[in-house]
Design a protein around this nucleic acid. Sequence first.
DNA 1: GTCTATAGGGTGATAGAC
DNA 2: GTCTATCACCCTATAGAC
Lengths: 209, 209
Amino acid sequence: MPTDTKERLLDSAELLFSSQGIANTSLRSLTEHAKVNLAAVNYHFQSKDALVQAVLFRRMNPINQRRLELLSALQNPTVEQILDAFYRPAVEAVLAGPEGRTVARLIGRLYSEPGDLLAGQVRALMAEVIRLFVESIQRALPGVPPATVLWRLHFCIGILAHTFGAMQLIEGMARGRIAYDDPEAILRQMITFASAGLRAEGESTCAAS
Amino acid sequence: MPTDTKERLLDSAELLFSSQGIANTSLRSLTEHAKVNLAAVNYHFQSKDALVQAVLFRRMNPINQRRLELLSALQNPTVEQILDAFYRPAVEAVLAGPEGRTVARLIGRLYSEPGDLLAGQVRALMAEVIRLFVESIQRALPGVPPATVLWRLHFCIGILAHTFGAMQLIEGMARGRIAYDDPEAILRQMITFASAGLRAEGESTCAAS
DNA sequence: GTCTATAGGGTGATAGAC
DNA sequence: GTCTATCACCCTATAGAC
């Protein structure tokens, strides 16, 4: 038996928002799926929007906290180690449970969905994470101009977001030639690609601040 | 004056779908914005879904056609040239008009939005494009295992999708330190990063077909 | 805390006049 | 081709009983 009403609502919301999209998920289908009364959403949360933020907070905050832990444990890290600290918490959290595949799509859509999906506390912590990782990468790659570091971290985030958001696309491309259930293999592919991209030469004349 | 009803509908749909999301855009607000009667959508297109596909077709097909043209004009290309053929039509099409910024978000969401946004003719041509680019990259990098080439093209697509879908994110990170209005500068950043990633060593022992 | 009932409004799609 | 009018349904949020 699931625990209380509030948690059941969060679980159902996460699942339905991920698979159908937020705008397409009505509070009626949501409360029906959670086997909870329709009014419970407005009692435990204040609105549908607040429920969305609560879902994202529960999922993203542990990931971002873990990123900061892993990063601060490194001393003079290589870009591979920095990328591992950034990617690993997300990949492991998402691919851990059996429901991971579905939730991944929601996280993948975090940045591109209209309506400021990323807001409030989640946004604040994410901004802090990005700030610290930019600094760390800059220290590891002193020869790369600051503006280029920003672009490249942006690309690194894109790699993660797309890997989460478009799993079906690569699975369709691959026709079984790819193992999508091995977190370590995925991490290795992402880190190998992204670290080479971060280290790339060129763009030295890019306009910096 | 805009031309006919059908084209006005496509223009308004593209703008509103991009900025508000598809599910959040009602046919009423759409036809109001286009200064067209409500029933026109169901007359010229068959349904809202068909309108969505028509919007994507009009925008994506020229891009994908141009990609194939540019690719087939290359002989023994480098990965930089292959990536240029893939990225350039999209970046130029999107950043050309003044409305580009908005439309970019819709294109960026193409792969991660629930409800099979990518369907029908658009999906078929996109699959063909991916197939040919995979082959071309494989030829340019014979030392990289096929499964790894798939992962890496997946990452290259992610870089483009995220650059289009999350422009506000990097602009927030950058606080003016980045020029987002220069197509050539963006292309250079993307190609420098992605070509280094494609060429990266490692993952040679990855399970291939 | 949890429920029922409903207010008040928006939605996609269609029939039929012009 | 374009319009009006309307159907049948869905939505979020809330008031008030238990």
